[in-house]
Amino acid sequence: MTALLEVRGLSVSYGGLRALKDVSFSVAPGECFVLLGANGAGKTSLLRCIGGLVRPVAGAISGNGLSLLGLRPSAIAHRGIAHVPEGRRVFPHLSVFENLSVSWLRRPGGPTLPDAVERIYGMFPRLAERRHQLAGTLSGGEQQALAIGRGLMNSPSLLMLDEPSLGLAPVITRQVFSQLNSIRESGIALLLVEQNASSLDLATRGLVLANGSVALAGSRDNLRDSAFVRRAYLGL
């Protein structure tokens, strides 16, 4: 089976400073792949590179067997790889509805705009209640829901999320993770960047980044049992 996303030997530098070094992994359809790592380990760089926001100095990225290198971020979004960026980045002066509407693309065979929006409202009833409210006035959890909803507007095959739990209260984080679980159960693969190790509950597989390199990779149970993860992330 072709991997949904295949990353091979990826290296990223910012002005000579190496942020990622020779990172390889792949995400299969329907799975939840978790990227763990401390601040500055290169997790965000990795997602931004896959999303087309940062050019790698070496390596290859392909989605469904086709290379994604050199494509604009919008073109990568059109290929079914959605990116929910760090810090949510909702459009503060657009309403909730407009945030969703602007993220929809007319495609033959795709859902209509009203259908796509209603599906998101069904998943996140709070967004339906606040559909006419400016996104900048939403709470952090609501903004995260909107950012995820925006990513789902084009029925992606892979949803990449950059620390969706950042700045959220634990109870809200649990809600977000349970939403993510239902998204995965609906058949959409997840690539989840987290510092929060409870994200491992969602994971099928994952890896740990340290100083821009892969420190550890494996199945959820491998990761959970490793002394490194237990010490660094689970506080055991």
């Binding site: 926001l53 604009r72 971020p73 919008s74 909702v90 459009f91 503060p92 002066h93 602007v102 084009n154």
Partner: peptide, 25 residues
């Protein structure tokens, strides 16, 4: 209009507009 929404989205955050599939250029 959706074009107008896209213009306002780019005004708010051009990179985020790219991420959701709008060609900001």
């Amino acid at each position: 209009t959706r074009w107008g929404q896209a213009i306002r989205a780019v005004a708010d955050d051009a990179e985020a507009a790219e991420i959701v599939g709008q060609n900001a250029q």
